[in-house]
C-alpha cells in the first residue's frame, strides 16, 4: 500500500512538467508584451527594454522555462504582472474561499445525490424514481451559468430570500446559491450513477442470501448492496472533489465569489501569465492528489483491488 501511494505521488512530477510546458508555450505565443502590460501605454522603449531584461522575458523560451521550474521546485510561483505581488500570496488569499465553496458543494452532492439515487433504485418506477430521472435530465442539460443566473434572479432578485452574489460576511446564506449551482450537475450524475449501481447490486445473488439470513431490508440495502454500489460512485465523487477544489471558474464568476476560479478567470482576461500558470499548477496538483485519495478509499471499499495492487512490479 505504501509503495503504491509513493509511486502515485511521484507520478505527479511528470504531469506538472507537462502542464507548465504547454502553458508556457501558449503564453509565449500570445503576441502581447508583459512589459507593456505592466507599464501601460506611453512607456518609453528604454523603460520597456529595461523591464524586460529585469523580468528575464527577453531571454529565449527554454531559459525562461528553466528559471521558472527552478523557482517552482523551491516553492516560488513567480510574480504577477498585474499586481506586482507574488503569485503565492495571491493564490493563498483566494484559495480558502474556493475550498469552502467546494466543501459546501460536495456535501450537497453526497447527501442529495446518494439519497436520490438510493430512493429511486429501491422504489424503482415509482413517482419518486420518475421525479429523480426527470429533474436530473433537466439539470444535466442546463448550462451552469444559466442555472446560476436563474437562481440569482429568482431567489435573489424576485423573492429576495438570499443574497445575489458575493461572499458577504461569509454566513450560510451566501453559500446556498453558489453551492447549489456548483453541485447541480454533480448531484445529477451521482444520483443517476447511484441508482444504476444500486440496482445492479440489488440484482446480485448475495442479496438473496442476505434476505435468506433474516436481515431487514434496511440492512440488506444499507449494508450489503450499499458497499458494492458505492464503489463506482466514490470515484465519481472523488474526481468531482478534485475538480471542485480547483475552484469553479463559471460559478465563481457568476456569483462574484472571491475564489481562485474567478482569480484565474480574471488573470486570463488580463494576460497575467504567472497567475494563470501558477494557479493551474496548483489545480492540477490538487486534482492528482484527490485522485490518489480516491484510489485509497477505493482499495478500502473493494478488497479485490487491494490484493491485486499488492503484487510487485511497477
Amino acid at each position: 500500500m505504501l509503495y503504491f501511494i509513493l509511486r502515485r505521488i511521484l507520478q505527479i512530477i511528470p504531469v506538472i512538467i507537462g502542464v507548465t510546458l504547454i502553458l508556457f508555450i501558449l503564453m509565449y505565443v500570445i503576441p502581447e508584451d508583459p512589459a507593456q502590460l505592466i507599464l501601460q501605454k506611453g512607456a518609453t522603449p528604454e523603460a520597456l527594454a529595461n523591464l524586460r531584461a529585469k523580468m528575464g522575458i527577453d531571454r529565449p523560451l527554454h531559459v525562461q522555462y528553466w528559471r521558472y521550474m527552478r523557482g517552482l521546485f523551491s516553492g516560488d510561483l513567480g510574480t504577477s504582472y498585474r499586481y506586482g505581488r507574488s503569485v503565492n500570496s495571491i493564490l493563498a488569499q483566494h484559495y480558502p474561499y474556493s475550498i469552502r465553496l467546494a466543501f459546501a458543494a460536495i456535501i450537497l452532492e453526497i447527501i442529495i445525490g446518494l439519497f436520490a439515487g438510493i430512493v429511486s433504485a429501491v422504489k424503482k418506477y415509482s413517482f419518486w424514481d420518475s421525479l429523480v430521472t426527470i429533474s436530473t435530465t433537466i439539470v444535466v442539460c442546463v448550462p451552469v451559468y444559466w442555472l446560476g443566473m436563474i437562481l440569482q434572479v429568482t431567489f435573489g432578485l424576485k423573492l429576495g430570500w438570499l443574497p445575489m452574489s458575493g461572499y458577504g460576511d461569509g454566513s450560510i446564506k451566501y453559500y446556498i446559491l453558489p453551492a447549489i449551482t456548483l453541485a447541480s450537475v454533480s448531484i445529477a450524475y451521482v444520483a443517476r450513477m447511484m441508482r444504476s449501481t444500486m440496482l445492479e447490486a440489488l440484482s446480485n445473488d448475495y442479496i438473496v442470501t442476505a434476505y435468506a439470513k433474516g436481515l431487514s431490508q434496511f440492512k440488506v440495502v444499507g449494508k450489503h448492496a450499499m458497499k458494492n454500489a458505492l464503489i463506482p460512485v466514490v470515484t465519481l465523487v472523488g474526481l468531482d472533489l478534485g475538480a471542485l477544489m480547483g475552484g469553479a471558474i463559471l460559478t465563481e464568476t457568476v456569483f462574484n465569489w472571491p475564489g481562485v476560479g474567478r482569480t484565474l478567470y480574471l488573470a486570463v482576461l488580463q494576460r497575467d501569465a504567472p497567475v494563470v500558470i501558477g494557479g493551474t499548477i496548483i489545480l492540477v496538483s490538487i486534482f492528482v492528489i484527490m485522485n490518489l485519495i480516491v484510489d485509497i478509499i477505493y482499495a478500502w471499499l473493494d478488497p479485490r483491488i487491494r490484493y491485486e495492487k499488492r503484487e510487485p512490479g511497477l
Binding site: N204, D205, Y206, V208, T209, A210, A212, K213, H224, K227, N228, I231, L301, D302, P303, R304
Partner: peptide, 15 residues
C-alpha cells in the same frame, strides 16, 4: 436456512 448453487456469487465479495 438456505444455501445456493454458486458460492462465489452468493457470498458478498466486499465483506
Amino acid at each position: 436456512s438456505m444455501i445456493f448453487q454458486d458460492p462465489m456469487t452468493s457470498l458478498n465479495p466486499v465483506f
